[in-house]
Design a protein around this nucleic acid. Structure first.
Length: 502
RNA sequence: UCCCCAGUAGCUCAGUUGGCAGAGCAGGUGACUGUUAAUCACCGGGUCGCAUGUUCGAGUCAUGCCUGGGGAGCCA
């Protein structure tokens, strides 16, 4: 990139070529002299230039050494610079005016700071411009960092100068008033700039890192599962179809589990973490067509071990997010974090049969073998102050690969973790069928194409072992942590039945 | 796939029994030295989702369609 130095009697700056129009003058109204410094990577120039317009001062003007494109100071670190003059780069979030004072809310991605422009401290042009910049103008603001009791941040910037990177070419669509969900989802690329969305995405980031850390620290190996899969494993209705060269149709994965079983036989403890696709026409607050799922799988582990892993895992993720984001969860998202503090082992464990009794006692008609619906889930979850583990569902309700309970063949060795407060199932998993003959029977009973599972059956032919695993949906977990009504806010760009843009 | 709701200014919404299209916010101009969604004054802003029908007259009533939202089923 070609750079240009803007030099005046007090100093200067180096900016990319073409930005001269945004730096017409220095703080006192003296014009800059433009010096082409050419293509540079790490500028280290010492150009002696006196301003042609400045006849009172003919001394040599120093150009700053090693200037950087990135701002030297961020809002998050502002307390370290009390009393210093600093330059912040950010976007104009809002603006208020009171005669000889203008208040600019500058957002830089790490925080928002109020910049106070006092008429006596800046050039008249700067003062006028400060009151006419539109929302979301990108700008550099220079000023003194001052502690102020009236500021929610604790600090303000006493402005001495500002320069604009770019003024919006049209009015910013998102005002400070309330907006409808449909409109905000259409403006999702801009909605991300709001404080609320920033907090949610940071919590998501923490959750994803906590997931990786949890498994990495326990000796798991991350194994990436394929996204294109060759056949419909559990019925075509839930899968997205894509053309695949001369091989016909491929499908977008709805789970990496079968591949993790193969990987567990090679590496022992493995997990995959990636996007998952469901073509089911679900229109609820808990559903997306594209979502992220983490799926661990462990060789030589039974259902009990799996359930212990689940509760330890969920607790780690929740407590990590709570420790890092408690303040924003409370102040920005108004989350009642006391409900998250209980999320520590051991979690209550009830069988499906016990859950049916709980649901019946609560007045919901239900017979053994019925699925537990959304309302029933909430009834069960509301009995406890932390996530509840419901295990040993009727085998007919579960996928073909679940192992049946030797003590009661009607039920499968599966377990779901239901989050409190109506957030529902965040984890589903269990022990896999390790007996070749039983697995083959399951494939027939579920009317699945046997040839597509030959490779999977090989895992039972060559040293089959008990093994188990589970899958957790990242969005449901984040929605629960943040106390959100809908999972669509937990993913940067939600993909739903009725929405694929932006 | 099924059920319910909504669509009026850039945004959020009001609009009486069917009788001249409205408010707040945002935007523009100005006032104010401490504003936190500032306040105050003035100004500009409309294919009432689309189509057909009923009527002297439709934002309003009817039918169909489109788009979005909420829920069910299924799931994470």
């Amino acid at each position: 990139m070609r750079f240009v130095a803007f030099v005046h009697r007090h100093g200067g700056r180096i900016l990319p070529e073409g930005w001269s129009r945004v730096c017409p003058a220095d703080d006192t109204g003296h014009p800059y002299v433009v010096v082409d410094v050419g293509v540079v990577v790490d500028v280290d120039v010492d150009v002696g230039v006196g301003s042609g317009q400045d006849h009172d001062h003919d001394h040599v003007t120093p150009v700053p050494r090693k200037p950087r494109m990135y701002p030297p100071v961020h809002v998050a670190d502002i307390s370290r610079h009390e009393g210093q003059e600093v330059t912040l780069h950010g976007w104009l979030q809002g603006r208020r005016s009171s005669g000889k004072l203008h208040f600019l809310q500058l957002r830089d991605g790490t925080g928002t700071i109020q910049c106070v422009v006092f008429r006596g401290n800046v050039a008249p042009e700067t003062f006028h411009e400060a009151d006419h910049l539109p929302q979301e103008t990108s700008l550099a603001v220079t000023g003194l960092v001052k502690r102020d009791e009236r500021s929610p941040l604790g600090f303000e910037l006493d402005v001495r100068g500002l320069s604009v990177f770019a003024r919006p070419s049209r009015e910013y669509p998102l005002g400070h008033k309330e907006h409808g969900v449909a409109f905000l989802m259409e403006q999702r690329h801009l909605w991300l700039r709001s404080q609320r969305q920033q907090v949610i995405l940071r919590v998501r980031h923490t959750v994803e890192k906590a997931i990786r850390d949890f498994f990495d620290e326990r000796g798991f190996t991350l194994v990436d599962a394929p996204i294109f899969t060759p056949s419909a494993c559990e019925g075509t209705s839930t899968l997205f179809e894509v053309p695949y060269f001369d091989l016909g149709k491929a499908y977008l994965t709805q789970s990496g589990q079968l591949y993790m079983e193969a990987a567990a036989m090679a590496l022992g403890k493995v997990y995959c973490f990636g996007p998952t696709f469901r073509a089911e026409k679900s229109k609820t607050r808990r559903h997306l067509t594209e979502f992220w799922m983490v799926e661990p799988e462990v060789a030589y582990m039974d259902l009990d071990g799996d359930m212990a892993l689940m509760e330890e895992f969920v607790s780690h993720v929740v407590q990590t997010a709570l420790a890092r984001h408690r303040k924003e969860l409370v102040s920005v998202l108004e989350r009642d974090v006391s409900k998250l503090e209980n999320v520590k082992p051991p979690f209550p464990r009830i069988t499906y049969s016990e859950a049916v009794e709980v649901i019946r006692k609560a007045g919901h008609p239900m017979t053994w073998g019925d699925d537990i619906g959304g309302d029933e889930e909430t009834v069960v979850a509301s009995q406890f102050d932390r996530p509840v583990m419901v295990h040993r569902y009727p085998a007919s309700m579960k996928a073909f690969y679940f192992k049946k309970d030797p003590a009661d063949p009607r039920v499968a060795l599966g377990c779901d973790v239901l989050a409190p407060e109506g957030y529902g199932e965040i984890i589903g998993g269990g022990q896999r069928e390790d007996d070749l003959a039983a697995l083959e029977r399951g494939i027939v009973e579920h009317r699945l194409p046997a040839e597509a599972f030959e490779w999977y059956l090989d895992l039972r032919r060559y040293g089959s072992v008990p093994h188990a695993g589970f899958g957790m949906g990242v969005e449901r977990c984040v929605a629960w942590l943040c106390g959100l009504h809908h999972v669509r806010e937990t993913i940067p760009f939600a993909r739903m039945m009725e929405r694929i843009t932006p």
